[in-house]
Amino acid sequence: MNNCESEEIVEAANIAISNLLPTKSRSLYDIAYNRFKKWCAEKNVQVYSENILLAYFSENAKNYKSSTLWAQYSMVNVDDKEFLMIKVGLILGIAGACRTDELVNLTVDDIEDVGSSLIVKIPNTKTKIPRIFVVIMWKYA
């Protein structure tokens, strides 16, 4: 908890986090997260950033070659001419925590280009609750 967060906010966030992960894969997420936290403690990392994540993944590549986070990290420097559609699918899937069928059913009408970011609407979800998320296009802005 930092100075700007009350105990009530932290507790609400912890409850939300505990409900985000699928039960059957929670242990894998916990293992990966604890590995990251241990690395941060060893490096005396107190504030997380994109650079921290990139450094962690590059130092621990052997542990993440099959993960979606490694896939996102490794796709940053590949040629857009050859891999742009794969990159777009990967970014949308990760940023929106999309299931395969949600990506397959996504249409151009579900994506709004607002300049340096995209607003993506997933109207048909497994939970029957439409979802909206934003993808910031920092590389292309």
Rank of each mutant, 00 (worst) to 15 (best):
L106R: 02
M75H: 08
M1F: 03
V114L: 10
N77P: 01
G93R: 03
I132N: 13
K43L: 11
A95S: 12
S27H: 13
W39P: 07
R99I: 03
I9G: 01
K37P: 07
Y140F: 08
I52H: 04
L103F: 07
S67D: 03
I86R: 07
K62H: 14
P123S: 09
K43G: 04
L90M: 15
V120H: 00
I15P: 08
Y140W: 11
G89P: 07
A16F: 14
I94H: 02
Y56G: 08
A41I: 07
F133S: 04
L84Q: 08
S27C: 13
E50F: 03
I119G: 00
I111T: 09
I119Q: 02
G89S: 10
Y33P: 01
I132V: 14
T23Q: 05
S27W: 04
E7D: 15
Y48W: 12
K128W: 01
S58L: 14
D80Q: 12
I15F: 12
C98F: 05
R99A: 11
S18Q: 06
S18R: 10
Y33E: 06
L106E: 13
V78K: 07
L21V: 12
R35E: 09
F133A: 01
M137G: 01
D109W: 01
E11G: 00
E7L: 09
L54R: 14
G96I: 06
F57H: 02
N63V: 01
D113A: 03
E112W: 00
A97Q: 01
I86L: 14
A95F: 15
V76C: 08
E5M: 03
R99S: 10
D110L: 00
S6W: 10
T68G: 00
W70G: 12
K43N: 15
L21R: 00
K62A: 14
E112N: 03
I31Y: 13
D79I: 08
E112R: 15
E8C: 02
F83Q: 08
F57I: 07
K37S: 14
I132R: 10
S66P: 05
R131H: 08
L28S: 15
K24S: 15
A95L: 12
E112I: 10
W70K: 09
R99D: 10
I86Y: 05
Y73R: 11
K87C: 01
T125P: 06
R131M: 07
Y140H: 11
